[in-house]
Amino acid sequence: MRVPAGFLIGAALSALFLLMAMVSFIWTPHDVTVLAVAERMKVPGDGYLLGTDHLGRDILSMLMVGARTSIGVALVAAGIGLAVGVPLGLFAAARRGGWVDEIIMRGNDLVFAFPPLVMAILIAAVFGPSALNAMLAIGVFNIPVFARVARAGAISLWTLDFIMAARVAGKGAARISAEHIFPNIGNLLIVQATIQFSVGIVSEAALSYFGLGAQPPVPSWGRMLADSQTMIGLAPHMALIPGLAIVLMVLGLNLMGDGLRDMLDPRMRRTA
């Protein structure tokens, strides 16, 4: 099987940010909790590879620790979507056409009717802003996405002969869903998880930009952008660098997702 070039570029970009986040646990070029006002708003170069922010913190170190927040929030949010959405989708597919299916799908439509940011604002308003609530808000929006993908994939499998054979062998709907349907929609779920992971990165950045995500002093890419906004004329690098980090990470994940879809689903290759 030919590996698409886009997939390789995307995987390399994603791996780079994952590595940055990992390394930040044991080492960062500078301490992000130390404020050095004399060193503030330094341009890239000059002792600091990517410059410093308005409080004299090293931007590269902030990016590394911020990657941890972004990846953590997006990962847990995708996990919530998978853990709740997939069983719902499988259950709906097992009862396709019945009232359970109808209720699950209408419930999905309802969640879709709430714009995700509005949902996050509501959750933050109710429970207070924190990284945990950002995960919850993004995760809730992921549930119907995974439920739909799982249901659509499962429904097409239920008509196939090997499922019929399993039913004849006396297996119940729950066992068939777990043992035969779930492994066969794995590809679909992996591709969707990559996409939702990238959506999660952007959403986390948007939420922390508005102060609804991780709270200070924990660095996050979104808040780095919010901090830079009033100083964008004086220190444009403060806005450009975290923004580029978000773009590269999301681009990497999207390229990886597209590549995975092309590799795992031969039908998509023609139109890609």
Partner: peptide, 22 residues
């Protein structure tokens, strides 16, 4: 367009301000 999908709208807004306003 691949790039356009990856750019967060609030960051693009800031870049537009930097270029066209400031």
């Amino acid at each position: 367009t691949q790039l356009g999908i990856a750019v967060p709208n609030f960051w693009f807004a800031m870049i537009l301000v930097l270029i066209f306003a400031i």
